[in-house]
Design a protein around this nucleic acid. Structure first.
Lengths: 144, 144
DNA sequence: AATAGTTGTAACAATAAAAGTAACAACTAT
DNA sequence: ATAGTTGTTACTTTTATTGTTACAACTATT
């Protein structure tokens, strides 16, 4: 029922990395502390962000860096990186409808066409929001 | 991570009920057979649809009937009925960010404001699609 | 009033998915 | 070589969802 917290953890890490102080190396241990979860979990998520070309991780020496400008990273890019298995569908459909029933035999296709529209609306909105906007919102929140 | 199949099962039942033949009483057992799940599960879902004023169930004698015209029932109405706990938020946020970190202390509010927009886009689209449209799509699919 | 069929609902079990954990090999600057 | 870090695997724990069973409550019919 819900989109996993991986998406939120990934955004947390990206904000942290984007706002990093000079000369500070951001390791998975630091991010794990900030996000309140395990370093291995963080590394798994960072791996997917790396594969998607969103960040660069220095192996061996350690440290994570944005691979693009924050305004070139959309929330959809992040979602697609961390939830490839729920792309394009995040609304579940029951698995075993009866094939011997007019409704059961066709419901999946009918629902998929409606869900496509709903999911597209969500994804389009995700595409319209950049990491830059998240960072700006974060700065505004801190100042208050 | 995903919206539960309750939403899909509910729509399945509603299509079945809306297209019912005359003189056929639609029980939870029939719907369970069609949807491929347990009658008690069906009854739980139908209960929520009843509470939301979407269907009428005849207790004792049995049978389920639409309480409104199909064009007066939107997908959002159905979603809100079966997933009240994921209303308004279906995107998860990690629970234990560090309070001692500028990012951890503020990330929830920042993410919520972005998620509000994304979720609103999905909900608006759900509001724009009626059960009537699902039924029409279903009929078109069957004819093919 | 008894019956048959159905729904409402509670308690519990099973399943699946997500997240946490631990361990260690691989890598790199020093 | 060493120290610190990431990559990755295997496993465990936790949580949420779904399935299952059972039975009380309800209603039309006889």
């Amino acid at each position: 029922m819900r989109i996993n917290i991986k998406f939120s953890v990934a955004l947390h890490c990206l904000v942290f990395i984007a706002e990093k102080q000079e000369h500070i190396k951001i390791t998975s241990a630091i991010l794990a502390e900030s996000a309140g979860c395990n370093p291995a979990v963080i590394r798994r998520i960072l791996n997917t962000l790396q594969s998607a070309g969103i960040i660069t991780t220095l192996r061996g020496v350690g440290g994570n860096y944005l691979a693009k400008e924050p305004n070139a990273i959309s929330l959809y890019d992040v979602y697609a990186a961390v939830e490839p298995e729920n792309l394009p569908h995040f609304i579940g459909i029951h698995a075993n409808p009866s094939e011997h029933c007019p409704v059961g035999a066709n419901i999946e296709n009918v629902l998929l066409s409606a869900y496509d529209e709903i999911e597209k609306a969500a994804f389009d909105k995700m595409k319209s929001i950049s990491l830059q906007q998240i960072i700006e919102k974060h700065c505004a929140t801190i100042e208050k």
